[in-house]
Amino acid sequence: MSETARERADRLERLPLSDIQAGGGGVFRGFGVFISELRLHRELLGLLVRRELKSRYKDSSLGFLWSLIRPLTMLLIYFVAIGQFLGAAREIPDFAIFVFCGLTIWGLYSDIVLGSTSSIIANAGLIKKVYLPREIFPLAATGAAIFNFLIQFGILLVATALAGVFPLTWDLLYVPAGIVVALVYGVAFGLLFSALNVYLRDIQYLVEVGLLIFFWASPVVYAWSFVVKAGDDAALAWVETVYLINPMSLSIMAFQRGVWAAGSQERVTADGITIPPQPWPADMDLRLLVAFGVGLVLLFIAQRVFSRLQGNFAQEI
C-alpha cells in the first residue's frame, strides 16, 4: 500500500495506547490531567472567549457599549436612591467612587458565576458531538467576564484620576488580592453550578436568587462601617464575624480599600461633620490569605465534582 499509510502505521505504533477516561484517575492525578488539558487547549479557550464577547451584542447597533451601560445605570440608580434619598452618601465620602468600586468587583464575581452556570447548557450542541475538556466552557464564560471587568476597572481608575483622588498608596496592593479572591470563588462556584445545572435545571434560578441575596449581604452599596455600627448598636458581637465569613465581603473590602482612597482618610464635610476612616477589619491581610486558601480547596473540590459529573453530560443535556 501507499508510503504514507506505512509511515502513519509506524508513527502510531510508537504512540502509547492510552486510556481515554483520564479524568477518572486518582484524585490528584485527575486534577493534574485537567491542568495539562487546559494548557493544550489554551488557544481554543481564547477563541471561545472571543466568540462569547463577539456574539453577545453582535447585531445591536451600540454593540459592546451595552455591557457598560448596565453598570453605569446601576451606579446612577444607587447613587441617587441609596446615596442621596436614603442618605448613605452623607456618611460615605466620594460615594460615587465607592459604589462603582463595589459594583465593579461584584460584577466580576456575579458575571463569572452566572455565565458559567449556564455555559454547559448553552454549548449543548458541541458537548454532545465533540470531545473537549468540558471545563473550557465555564472558563470561557470566566474569560468574557474578566474582559468586561477590565474595561470597567479602567473606567473606574480614569474616574478616580479625573476626580483627583487616584489612590497612590500602598493600599493599592489590596486590589489584586481582592480580584484574586473573587476569581477563585467565582470559578469554583461556576464550575460546580455549571455541572449541577445539567442535572437539575433549577440551579440557574437558585443561583440568580442566591446572587441577589449575597449582593445585599456584601458591602457593595453600603459601607462596612454601617455593619460595624449596626452590630455595636445591637450589642451583637457576632454580626461582624458572620458577615466576614462571606469571602466576597472580604474581596470587595480589599478592592475598596485599594481604590477608594477616601475610605481610609478622615474627612470633614461642608457642614462640619467629621467622617472617620473605615474601620477595616483587623488582620485583613491574614483573612484574605485564609479566604484565598479555602477558595483554592473549594476550586479543587469543584473541579473534581465537575469531572465526576461530566461523564454523563452528553446524554443528560
Binding site: L17, D19, I20, Q21, G24, I127, K128, Y131, G311, A314
Partner: peptide, 11 residues
C-alpha cells in the same frame, strides 16, 4: 470519549 462508559475501558 463523548460518553463515559459505565464499566470497561477504551484505549
Amino acid at each position: 470519549g463523548i460518553i463515559r462508559p459505565t464499566s470497561g475501558t477504551v484505549k
